Structures are given as C-alpha cells and as structure tokens.
Simulated scan of single mutants.
Amino acid sequence: MESLLTYNSVIIPKEGGGNLEIVLLLFTIFPIIVILASIIGYLLIKKWFVIPLLTSVVFTILTFTIFNESFFIWTVLYTILSLIMSLIMKFSKK
C-alpha cells in the first residue's frame, strides 16, 4: 500500500506524477471523452439512452478497479453529462 497516494480520497499510484494528472483527468480528459462518445454514439446507434448507460457501467468499473468508492460521485456526474449530451443530440436532430 506504500506505492499509493491518496488525493481527495481518490487513490492514485505514486509513480503517476502527482496531483496535476488526476485533476487533468477529472476536469478535462474524462469530460471530453464522455462528450465525444455521447455525440458519436448517438449518431451511430440513434438511441439516446445507450451511451449514458455505457458511460455509467464503464465508470462504475473504473471506480472499483482503478480508483476507490469516492470516485463514484464522478461516475454520477459523467453519466449526467452523457445523458445531457445525448438528449441535446436527440432533440437537435429532429
């Protein structure tokens, strides 16, 4: 357990570089991935609920494998972001 750091109750590996990387993941990289996946997923599948469901499943798995239970709030936020983007795509395509 000595090779792990705790940042705001989220466990990250020590060799990960520090706090800047986790902030970069949480506030830029993950939201961009969720937004792009929601747009592309809606255009390919044409069902507004599939990508938010997939987002929820993927981030829940990440919560319990890579991060810890405190990451679950981010799972909820990314799922809501995906839901909003999917609904925007649904109503803008009509």
Rank of each mutant, 00 (worst) to 15 (best):
A37C: 06
F72A: 05
V34R: 01
I35W: 03
M85S: 06
T28K: 03
T65L: 04
L77C: 14
P52A: 07
K47Q: 09
I66H: 08
L26F: 12
V57H: 00
K47D: 07
V57F: 13
L53H: 04
T55L: 05
T75R: 11
L53D: 06
F71E: 07
I29H: 07
I45S: 03
S82V: 12
W74R: 11
F71G: 12
S82D: 04
K47H: 11
L26H: 10
Y42I: 06
F49K: 03
I35F: 11
I61G: 11
V57P: 01
L77D: 08
T63P: 02
S38F: 11
Y42V: 01
N68D: 12
S38A: 15
L53P: 00
L43T: 02
I66V: 14
V58Q: 05
Y42E: 02
F71N: 10
T28N: 13
F67T: 12
I32H: 06
Y42K: 01
P31Q: 03
S86N: 11
N68A: 10
I84V: 15
T28V: 15
K90D: 01
M89R: 00
I33Q: 08
L44Q: 05
T60P: 01
G41L: 07
I45H: 05
F27H: 06
L87G: 01
N68T: 06
F59G: 00
I84G: 08
W74M: 13
T65G: 04
F64G: 02
S86R: 01
A37L: 12
F67R: 09
T63A: 05
F72E: 04
V57M: 13
N68E: 13
I51V: 14
K90G: 00
A37S: 15
F30K: 12
F30N: 15
V50N: 00
V76R: 09
P31H: 04
I66T: 14
I80T: 10
A37P: 00
S82R: 06
V34S: 11
K47V: 07
I66A: 14
I88C: 03
V57D: 03
K47Y: 11
F71L: 11
I39D: 04
F27G: 14
L26D: 07
V76F: 13
W74K: 10
I32Y: 08
T28P: 01
L83G: 09
I66W: 02
I84R: 02
I80C: 10
L87Q: 02
G41S: 04
P31Y: 10
W48C: 00
W48Y: 06
T79N: 08
F30Y: 12
S70K: 08
I88Y: 05
L81C: 09
S70E: 08
T60D: 03
I84K: 04
T63C: 14
L62Q: 13
I88G: 01
L43F: 07
T55C: 14
K46M: 02
S82P: 07
I88A: 03
I29D: 05
S86T: 04
F30I: 13
F64K: 02
S82E: 05
I61C: 04
T79H: 09
S70D: 14
S38W: 07
L83F: 15
F59W: 15
L54F: 15
